[in-house]
């Protein structure tokens, strides 16, 4: 708040005062009052009005400057009413009350949606746990009645299972910190876990798996989440494979306190300009459109999000028609900051 603007606001008062003084002066002049008294009248009125304006200016300046400074400093700007002192003039008091009311109402509104979202998330989790029971039952029925037909159903069921799992992890992805335990884990077990989830389809599609150098690598991570992430990448390798000689090579290398897991396929690859966008939510790109695969644009997005939350790195390299390589970088010691 600067003084000029404030004075402009006070123009009516100032003009009124000048008018009042002038009329008094004219009146006093008509009665032949001495000059000294006339001057006195002018000075005293001007002095009182000026003083009143200055005091008001000081008060308001203090309050509003503090308010502006607060709003600039605050990250959660909706908390402004909480950090504002109650001023000792009426407009300020009204302003603060209004701010408080809007803040409260906004918070209620936000909470309303938060609750809806929380309810929905709970429902999704519950639903997924429910749907797992018929999946488990179907899998057992298939196990007890093995033939070409059930084998093919089994493959489809694996897909259902994978999609359900993706939904579960998506629902949880915003609160990873509530549901993970970092443990010393063997990288080979994690990779094997992810491969086994795709056993039927890998065997049926005749995709060969090559594992190298995975024996001794120990990593610090939550194995359930890590299996999920690797599983998504293997599923992509399966989805975007070529017709013949399908292969997925998985290897690892140690590098300064880190273990890098390489998952490389010889599939259709990704167009050069699209590589930087593959981790975006909903991005399906040329492969999603042309080849007619069921791309959702969720898999890699979720991988990236979970990796970020778990303190893992994820990178992707690809060449059109040559294949894709995904690297996941695990910390090797337990002192990594999450």
């Amino acid at each position: 708040m600067n003084f000029k603007d404030f004075i402009k606001e006070k123009m009516i008062l100032i003009i009124g005062t000048i008018l009042a003084i002038s009329s008094i002066e004219i009146l006093l002049l008509a009665y032949h009052i001495s000059l000294l008294v006339r001057l006195y009248c002018i000075i005293i009125v001007l002095l009182v009005v000026a003083l009143a304006i200055l005091i008001e200016y000081k008060r308001k300046k203090e309050f509003y400057n503090q308010l502006i400074k607060n709003i600039e400093d605050l990250r959660e700007k909706y908390l402004i009413s909480e950090v504002t002192k109650t001023p000792n003039f009426i407009e300020g008091k009204i302003l603060k009350e209004v701010l408080q009311d809007t803040g409260k109402s906004m918070l209620e509104n936000v909470n309303y949606y938060k609750n809806i979202q929380e309810d929905y998330k709970e429902y999704i989790e519950l639903w997924i746990h429910e749907v797992k029971i018929p999946i488990a039952a179907s899998k057992l029925i298939i196990e007890n009645n093995k033939n070409e037909i059930t084998k093919s159903i089994d493959e489809e069921l694996d897909k259902v299972e994978n999609y359900t799992e993706q939904a579960l992890f998506y629902a949880r992805s915003n609160a990873v910190e509530k549901d993970y335990i970092i443990n010393k884990t063997n990288l080979k077990d994690v990779v094997n876990g992810a491969i086994l989830k795709n056993k039927s389809i890998l065997l049926n599609e005749k995709i060969s798996i090559e594992l190298t150098n995975l024996q001794q690598e120990e990593i610090y991570t939550d194995s359930k989440w890590a299996i999920f992430i690797i599983n998504q990448i293997i599923q992509n390798a399966i989805k975007y494979s070529k017709k013949n000689d399908k292969k997925i090579e998985i290897s690892s290398r140690e590098k300064n306190d880190k273990v890098i897991l390489y998952i490389k396929d010889n599939g259709i690859g990704i167009k050069n300009g699209e590589i930087t966008r593959v981790f975006e939510r909903g991005f399906t790109g040329e492969n999603g459109r042309i080849i007619g695969q069921k791309s959702t644009g969720i898999g890699l997005y979720l991988c990236k999000k979970l990796c970020d939350k778990l303190g893992l790195g994820i990178e992707l390299n690809s060449e059109k028609n040559e294949g894709t390589e995904v690297r996941i970088i695990f910390p090797k010691n337990s002192y990594t900051n999450f």
Binding site: H129, E130, A136, D179
Partner: peptide
């Protein structure tokens, strides 16, 4: 169980279970 969170696993082991598997389980495993 069909619930696969860490808390349930810990609770089961704490209750004295020897192993813990989640549905849909791999039957061979």
């Amino acid at each position: 169980t069909s619930r696969d969170n860490e808390i349930d696993e810990l609770m089961s082991l704490y209750a004295g279970a020897d192993q813990y598997v989640t549905k849909p389980y791999n039957i061979q495993i």
